[in-house]
Computed example of a mutant assay.
Amino acid sequence: MKQQQYNTLKDQITPKVPIPLNCLKAFVVGGVICSIGQAISFLYMIFFDFTEKTVGNPTVATMVFLAMLLTGFGQYRKLGQFAGAGSAVPVTGFGNAVISAAIEHRSEGLVLGVGGNMFKLAGSVILFGVVSAFFVSLIKLILVSVGVTSW
């Protein structure tokens, strides 16, 4: 009987999470971030003569840089509190993770604090991204060499 009383009390005290609203906010904010990235891509293609194949890298670098600036000025945290995963999933979440760790450890100095802790969280993202790219490239190489595809 005590377990049932505990569960009843827990249900009364625990705030209700508005899951559909949180999903909608994450979807909209993530979509807006991606739309900004697409607009930056178009600007690079129009003004700097990039092609659709070459515009990806400068666009990603710009988005990460903008997220880092917003994090440095304390605005990305507000966006993250509002949007949740909608601000963490796009590439801007990577920039936020890197700079947040650097800001948190800046009191320990530039080398041991900022430099040593900057990629603690983002390091695993980089590692698994590189390993995944290696295996995809290996599969592509094998498929091309046996003549299955002509990528």
Rank of each mutant, 00 (worst) to 15 (best):
P58N: 07
K53A: 14
T92S: 08
A102R: 02
G56P: 00
R77M: 03
Q5A: 12
P18W: 00
M45K: 14
Q38C: 05
V146L: 09
G74F: 04
A83H: 06
K10C: 05
I33P: 01
T71L: 04
L21R: 14
G30I: 06
H105D: 09
L143G: 04
A122I: 06
E108G: 01
F134V: 15
C23W: 07
L9I: 13
Q3S: 12
V131E: 05
A26I: 06
N117M: 11
E104N: 13
G37R: 06
V64C: 04
F128Q: 13
K140D: 07
V28Q: 02
V89E: 02
G129K: 06
T54S: 15
V55E: 06
A101S: 15
F48H: 11
L69E: 03
F65M: 15
T71G: 04
S100P: 00
F65V: 14
F48Q: 11
A133Q: 03
I142K: 09
F119H: 10
T14D: 05
Q4F: 08
F135E: 07
F42Y: 12
Y44S: 05
M68E: 03
K53T: 14
G74L: 07
V89H: 01
S41C: 06
P58Q: 04
T149E: 04
R106W: 04
V32K: 02
A88T: 09
G80Y: 01
A61S: 10
I19K: 11
V64I: 15
G74M: 09
Q38M: 09
A61W: 09
S150P: 00
A133G: 02
T54H: 03
D49H: 12
M118N: 01
P90C: 09
L143W: 07
S132T: 15
S100L: 03
V64P: 02
